[in-house]
Computed example of a mutant assay.
Amino acid sequence: MDATLKFTASHEWVKDNGDGTVTVGISDHAQQLLGDVVFVDLPEVGAEVETGESFSLVESVKAASDIYGPVNGEIVEVNEELEDSPELVNEAPYEGGWLAKIKLADDHNLDHLSSAEEYLASIEE
């Protein structure tokens, strides 16, 4: 796992792309809890995302789980590969299994997220 990733309490990860956008996905821990992912309901490009509001849905053989906005912003890209290969969420949650790229509404939008170290400590409790 990339030590520069930030995390939410609801198991989304956020990577700062350094250009005012972030890439978002679900953590390795979350995909393990879900089991085999069979469908990802991707958001629409141009849709607004709000922190804590559901913007996507991941369905597995066990359950369907809402994916919550980790930041405020606008969807600028979605991972269309997931339409045909939703298992990428399981196989490479931090690489090929990303869900969306979001243009941040403001630059200070990542301060509320946990570091990788803090997140790992929280799921070990």
Score class of each variant (00 low, 15 high):
Glu48Arg: 13
Glu48Asp: 10
Gly52Trp: 05
Gly52Asp: 06
Gly52Pro: 10
Ser54Pro: 13
Phe55Ile: 11
Phe55Lys: 14
Ser56Pro: 01
Ser56Lys: 08
Ser56Met: 11
Leu57Ala: 06
Val58Thr: 11
Glu59His: 02
Ser60Gln: 05
Val61Met: 07
Val61Tyr: 10
Val61Thr: 08
Lys62Asp: 03
Lys62His: 02
Ala63Ser: 14
Ala64Thr: 10
Ser65Phe: 04
Ser65Glu: 03
Ile67Thr: 02
Tyr68Cys: 00
Gly69Cys: 04
Gly69His: 06
Asn72Leu: 00
Asn72Thr: 06
Glu74Tyr: 02
Ile75Asn: 08
Ile75Pro: 07
Val76Ile: 11
Asn79Ala: 07
Glu80Cys: 02
Glu81Asp: 14
Leu82Pro: 13
Asp84Val: 01
Pro86Arg: 03
Pro86Lys: 03
Pro86Thr: 05
Pro86Leu: 03
Leu88Pro: 04
Leu88Thr: 07
Leu88Gly: 03
Leu88Arg: 10
Leu88Cys: 02
Leu88Ile: 04
Val89Gln: 03
Asn90Leu: 01
Glu91Thr: 08
Glu91Phe: 04
Pro93Asp: 01
Pro93Phe: 10
Tyr94Val: 13
Tyr94Ser: 09
Tyr94Gln: 11
Glu95Arg: 13
Glu95Leu: 14
Glu95Lys: 15
Gly96Asp: 15
Gly97Arg: 05
Trp98Tyr: 04
Ala100Leu: 11
Ala100Phe: 06
Lys101Arg: 14
Ile102Glu: 04
Ile102Asn: 01
Lys103Pro: 12
Leu104Tyr: 06
Leu104Gln: 09
Ala105Thr: 10
Ala105Ser: 14
His108Val: 00
Asn109Gly: 13
His112Arg: 12
His112Tyr: 01
Leu113Gly: 04
Ser114His: 04
Ser114Pro: 04
Ser114Cys: 01
Ser115Phe: 03
Ala116Gly: 05
Glu118Leu: 10
Tyr119Trp: 01
Tyr119Val: 06
Leu120Ala: 14
Ala121Glu: 14
Ala121Arg: 15
